[in-house]
Computed example of a mutant assay.
Amino acid sequence: MSTHPPFRKVFEGVATRSQMFALFDRHSDTPGVDPLSGVPYASEWFEISASEYHFMLGLLPPLFQRTGMFGMSEYKAGNVTSVFFAIRIRGRERWFHGFCDLSDKHSPDAMRAAIIAHETGALDSMTREEKLEAIWSATHADFRGIAGETDPDAWPSEHHGKRTILVYTVGQGTTLKLLEDLTDEEIDSRMPAVHARSRRRGGNDAELS
């Protein structure tokens, strides 16, 4: 039986090569997690370009390869490795990267299905949780942290260990706020520009052909 966490999109838009490599290690500076276990990464995914897909395919002999999918032979940690997907959506080829826990042999196919389901959903198909993950990924380490890590008295004990982010509040200036407590307006204002442009266009180019 599968025990992988829910599949979740962690970046909105098409990641550049530098963004892709940053996302490969996005948990490396997150206090309170063990990135070497691979667990924080399992089931995360994001979109890349064709050039990054083929670059990664040529980097190392793949662990496995079949039509529209290959896995990296170098594991991230534990049973978690990178799997790359080429998926035709609404007549257009698109490319994605995801971290799959191969202790579940069905994980790559389940992730592919989850990506298709997500990208053929509603216009604003990112869930609140996925938006928060995208914001966390895009925020520089200097502007995010963990509640109670440096000043335990600054936060109630029930919030210790939760992620925080710097926000500007009218009348209060710049303050730390729990990531999970961001308002819808604060979330929208912090989403990557690609996402904002997509919403202004009102287009939905995610439909399975």
Rank of each mutant, 00 (worst) to 15 (best):
S2A: 04
S2R: 09
S2C: 02
H4Y: 12
F7T: 00
F11K: 01
E12I: 07
E12R: 00
F21Q: 12
F21W: 14
D25Y: 10
S28F: 08
T30Q: 08
T30M: 01
P35T: 04
P40D: 13
Y41T: 07
A50E: 15
E52A: 05
Y53N: 02
Y53D: 14
G58W: 00
L59I: 02
L60W: 03
P61M: 05
P61V: 05
P62E: 02
L63V: 00
L63F: 04
R66C: 10
R66L: 02
F70I: 00
N79T: 15
V80P: 07
V80D: 05
T81S: 13
F84W: 07
A86G: 12
A86C: 13
R88E: 15
G91I: 00
R92C: 13
W95M: 01
G98K: 00
F99V: 01
L102M: 12
L102F: 06
S103K: 04
D104V: 00
H106P: 08
S107Q: 08
P108D: 04
D109C: 02
I115Y: 11
T120D: 14
T120M: 05
G121P: 10
D124M: 05
M126G: 14
T127E: 12
T127R: 04
E129Y: 06
E129Q: 11
E130G: 03
K131D: 09
E133P: 03
S137P: 02
A138E: 06
T139P: 07
A141V: 06
A141M: 05
F143M: 10
G145K: 08
E149C: 00
E149M: 10
T150E: 04
D151V: 03
W155D: 12
S157I: 06
E158C: 04
H159W: 03
H160Y: 14
T164K: 11
T164V: 13
I165G: 02
I165N: 10
T169C: 11
T169H: 06
T169R: 15
Q172E: 13
L176H: 14
L178T: 09
E185Y: 04
D188P: 02
R190C: 03
A193E: 13
A193M: 06
A193S: 13
S198I: 00
R200M: 06
R201Q: 10
N204F: 06
L208T: 12
